[in-house]
Each structure stands twice: as structure tokens, then as C-alpha cells.
Nucleic acid binder design. Structure first.
Length: 333
DNA sequence: TGCATTTGACCCGC
DNA sequence: GCGGGTCAAATGCA
């Protein structure tokens, strides 16, 4: 590729990085704001119009971020070779869920692993583990602080830790291909606190999230149990959280590993070079978004537009924009 | 009966 | 080879 092309890519990458960073900061702001919002709701019994307006503005800002990122991605959706997984840009190229899976793993996972076809008993665990995409960690007294619906898919004893780690994925993975997962583990020093590691972004339409919410509790044996509850219960949760919300420590995101290659280093340097603890998105974002397009496209069954990028970009934009307006719905009722 | 959770098995990355 | 992450059959629950 010529130098102009490389420059363009580098510039685009930095733009996307900055947008993603801004997006995430706004999301964090929305999260924090929503907690105060809910507290206010409880204390006053009503919502101020200022709060509604501010929340709406946050949602609009997020929508702008996502739309811009999507448009940028649409011009060059094929990721760089530095990305660790298959880059065919087609779900057909992989059969894993979050990850590409070798051709030997047949079945073309459409989301719910239980529905996977052609994977025999001996094929359990047939997947290529994706290197961690953008992750961030929070510590909280409750693990259902976020508004998303999660489904537990595993639990594991971790070496040198007192409490097991629980694995959750988005409830909408089977239907919308949402790749978001989170890991929850009790802190040894402060067992009343949880360390929650979020991995990946939600690509599902969060309007559904307002209808269903996963309430997660700790069993007597220190294992995490999750039950699905509905809107009526959310207010109860909010009340329960009244004293806990302030405990939400947005640890501000320790991006861990995953600095693969110079390009990613470059983007990281571009997005957070100062000493402040801040978000450091990994460069897989662009690839993930591209996969998201594919996922949306695939799961929506819109086979007639397979070769038209803008078709699913439109879908994604719509989805992303909608997905970041959960709180008005949740609390304005 | 359908959906969510549990839990042992399996596989990958380090 | 080990530890961690995911799968998927078994099980539980509404």
C-alpha cells in the first residue's frame, strides 16, 4: 500500500480511537448520572425535567459518536492484518460466537451454542479464543448495576482466589449476536464488593433491556445466581441500590493486555498518552464493529443485501442509537 | 414445556 | 503443562 493510504488509515484509526474514547466516557457519564438520577427519583418521587433533558442529551451525544464511527468504518471495513482473528468479513468464515472458529468446527454458530449443529460431544470447547477486545473494570457492591440483561454461562474457580469467577454474556446474544460479556468476581479483601470486568460492547438493541433485567445475587456458597426479572422489579432494585450507588467505583478502566503490534501501539498512544488513568481502547474496535455489522446482518436474516455494506450500516446505526436511550424508558414510566 | 443455570469437559494462549 | 475461558448436556424452575 502506498504511503498516502497508510496515512489515511492511520488518521482514520486515530479519529475512530478518539471517538470511541469519547463515546466510552459519555457512557460512563451516563452510568453515573443514571445512578444519581435514580436516587433523585427515589428521594423526590419525581423526575426533574432537567434530569430528563440531560439524559436525553447524553443519549444523543452517544448516538452521534456511534453514527460517526459507523460511517468511518464503512469506508474501510476490512481490518488490518494485525487483528488476531479471521478477517473474512463474513460469518461464514467462522463458526465461533465471539471468536472465529476453525473450519473443522462446523455448525456456523448463530449465537446460542446449544443450537449449534454438527458439533459432536467430543467437540466441546471447539473455538478459537479471541484475545480480549476492549475491556474495562469496575468495582461495585452490586453486580447488576448496569441496565443490561445478562445470562450466566460459566463459573470457574480461579487459582489463588477465594471466590469463583462467574461468566456472563448478553441475554440477546442468540437473537442479536451481541458479543458483550462480563466476568464477576468477589474481592477477597472486601467480600461485599465485586470486581466486574466488561468485555466488548453491546450491539443489541437495548430497548429490550428495559423490559428484562438480570438480577444477580450471591448465593450462600459464594456462587453467583442470576434470575431474570421484569420492569416491575427494576424499581425495587433501584431502591435497594439507594445506599450502594455511591459505592460504584468506576475504576476507570484498566486496559489490560492486547497491545498487538505497532499499529495498535500507535493508536493507543494517540488516544491516551498522558499519565492519567483513562480508557485505552484496543484497536480491535474497528474489527469488532465490522463483525457487528455482519452479526446484525446475519441474525436479522436480511440475506438480500449481503453485498451492500450500507444496508447493515444503517441497521447498526439505528440499533446503536436506540441502544443508548435506556434510562428515559426505564425511569420515565 | 421452554428457558436459565449448573457444572464437568474441552480447548486455547501463555 | 497449566490456568482460564467457553461449550453444551444435565438439571432446575416457573
Amino acid at each position: 500500500m502506498d504511503s498516502n493510504g497508510n496515512n489515511t488509515k492511520a488518521v482514520k484509526r486515530k479519529v475512530v480511537d478518539n471517538l470511541v474514547e469519547g463515546c466510552e466516557f459519555t457512557t460512563q457519564l451516563q452510568l453515573l448520572f443514571s445512578h444519581r438520577h435514580s436516587n433523585q427519583h427515589i428521594e423526590t418521587g419525581s423526575l426533574s425535567s432537567d434530569s430528563d433533558l440531560a439524559n436525553e442529551l447524553i443519549s444523543k451525544i452517544l448516538g452521534c459518536f456511534h453514527k460517526t464511527i459507523s460511517v468511518l468504518d464503512s469506508f474501510d471495513p476490512v481490518p488490518d492484518v494485525s487483528f488476531p482473528v479471521a478477517v473474512e468479513g463474513s460469518r461464514n468464515a467462522s463458526c465461533g460466537d465471539d471468536s472465529a472458529t476453525p473450519a473443522s468446527c462446523n455448525g456456523g454458530d448463530s449465537g446460542d451454542s446449544r443450537k449449534r449443529l454438527g458439533v459432536g460431544k467430543g467437540k466441546r470447547g471447539c473455538y478459537i479464543r479471541k484475545k480480549r477486545s476492549h475491556t474495562w473494570t469496575v468495582q461495585a457492591k452490586r453486580i447488576d448495576e448496569d441496565m443490561y440483561a445478562w445470562r450466566k454461562y460459566g463459573q470457574k474457580e480461579i487459582l489463588n482466589t477465594k471466590f469463583p469467577r462467574s461468566y456472563f454474556r448478553c441475554t440477546h446474544k442468540p437473537t442479536q449476536g451481541c458479543k458483550a460479556t462480563k466476568q464477576v468476581q468477589k474481592l477477597e479483601q472486601t467480600p461485599e464488593m465485586f470486581q466486574i470486568t466488561y468485555i466488548g460492547h453491546h450491539t443489541c438493541n437495548v430497548s429490550d433491556q428495559t423490559q428484562v433485567k438480570t438480577e444477580i445475587t450471591m448465593d450462600s456458597d459464594n456462587t453467583l445466581a442470576a434470575t431474570t426479572s421484569h420492569q416491575d422489579h427494576i424499581n425495587v432494585n433501584v431502591q435497594e441500590q439507594e445506599n450502594d450507588v455511591s459505592s460504584l467505583i468506576v475504576d476507570m478502566v484498566k486496559q489490560e493486555e492486547n497491545i498487538n503490534g505497532d499499529q495498535i501501539k500507535d493508536s493507543c498512544e494517540g488516544s491516551s498518552t498522558d499519565g492519567n488513568l483513562s480508557l485505552v481502547w484496543q484497536d480491535e474496535m474497528m474489527f469488532d464493529d465490522y463483525q457487528h455489522h455482519q452479526d446484525h446482518h446475519y441474525y436479522r436474516g436480511e440475506t438480500s443485501t449481503t453485498s451492500h455494506q450500507f444496508s447493515f450500516i444503517d441497521n447498526d446505526q439505528l440499533s446503536l442509537f436506540d441502544s443508548y436511550c435506556p434510562y428515559e424508558e426505564m425511569y420515565a414510566r
